[in-house]
Design a protein around this nucleic acid. Structure first.
Lengths: 146, 146
DNA sequence: ATAATAGTGGGGAAAAGTGGGGGATTTCTA
DNA sequence: TAGAAATCCCCCACTTTTCCCCACTATTAT
C-alpha cells in the first residue's frame, strides 16, 4: 500500500527521485502517466495492466472511447529506475503537471501522485475545508463505521 | 503496447523519425493510413491484418460500410524505415493531416497516431476538461478500481 | 562516533534525432 | 530514345538527449 508525502526536487537533467519507501512496491520498471488532475500518476506494472485490460474492451468506433484511450495512453510510458533510484521525467508530462523544481510525491493506495509543490499547496488548502462534507457525501448510504 | 507522446519534426524531404521506443514493436515494415480524426494512423502489420479481417466481414451492400472501407484502405500504404529510423511520409497523407513541420507522435495501444502539433494542442485542450467526465461515464457500471 | 542508506549533482560515453550531399533509379519530355 | 528532371535512398556529419558512473552531502541507525 502506497502512502505518505515526500518533498523532493527535480534536477536540471529532469530527473526525479522515487522515495526509497516506494521502490519495493514499484519494482524497477513501472508506468508513469497523466493524472486526471494537474498531476502525474505512477502505477506498478500489474496495476496498470488491469487498467489497460479495461481500456481494451472499449470500442474504438466510439468517439468518447477513442478520446479517452488517446488521452490516457498518450500520457503513459514505462520508465526505469537508474542506479540512484531516480527516473527521467518525460518532458510532456512534466509540462502537463507544471513540474519544475520542487515537487511533492504522495502515495494514494495503489498509485503515486506527483504534484508541483505550489499546485499541491493550492489543492490542499482549497480542499481541506470541504473534506468533512465530502466524507459525509461519499459514505451517506453506508452504515459502516470507520 | 504502444504508449507515450513524442514531439518531432518533419524535414524538408518529407521524412519523419519513428521514435526509438516504437521500433521494436513496429518492425521495419508497417502500415500507414488515414486516421478517423485529423491525423495519421500507423499500425504494425499484424494489427492491420486483424483490422482488414474485420472490414471484410462488413456487408458491402451497406452504403456506410462501403464508404468506410474505401476511406480506410485508400489511404493505406506499407512503408519502410530507412537506416536512420525514419519514414518518408506519403504526401496525400501529410496533406490530409495538415502535417508540415512540427508533429506529435502518440502511442494509443495497438497503433500510433501522428498529429500536427497545433491540431494536437487544440484537440488536447478541448478534450482535457471532458476527460474526468468521460472517465466517470465509461466506468460507471464498473466496481473495479483504477 | 561510525557506518549504512538516501538523496543530489555533474562528467562523459553512447544512442537518438536532424539535416543535407550526392548517386542511383524512375519518370517525364522533347 | 536520349537527355533532363524529379524522386528516392544511402551515407556522412553534427547536435541533442539519455544513461551510466562516480563523487559528494545529508540523514538515519547502531
Amino acid at each position: 500500500m502506497l502512502m505518505g508525502e515526500f518533498h523532493h526536487s527535480i534536477d536540471q537533467k529532469g530527473r526525479m527521485i522515487i522515495p526509497a519507501k516506494f521502490r519495493e512496491t514499484l519494482g524497477s520498471n513501472f508506468i508513469i502517466t497523466r493524472g486526471i488532475e494537474k498531476c502525474i500518476y505512477i502505477y506498478p506494472k500489474d496495476a496498470f495492466a488491469q487498467i489497460t485490460q479495461k481500456l481494451k474492451s472499449l470500442p474504438f468506433t466510439k468517439k468518447n472511447a477513442r478520446s479517452f484511450v488517446r488521452f490516457f495512453l498518450s500520457g503513459a510510458l514505462e520508465v526505469e529506475l537508474d542506479k540512484q533510484g531516480r527516473i527521467l521525467l518525460p518532458e510532456p508530462l512534466a509540462k502537463y503537471a507544471s513540474l519544475s523544481k520542487n515537487c511533492v510525491i504522495i502515495g494514494t493506495g495503489e498509485r503515486l501522485e506527483v504534484w508541483d509543490e505550489d499546485s499541491w499547496q493550492t489543492f490542499f488548502t482549497e480542499e481541506q475545508d470541504n473534506m468533512a462534507e465530502i466524507a459525509e457525501d461519499l459514505f451517506q448510504d453506508s452504515d459502516e463505521r470507520w
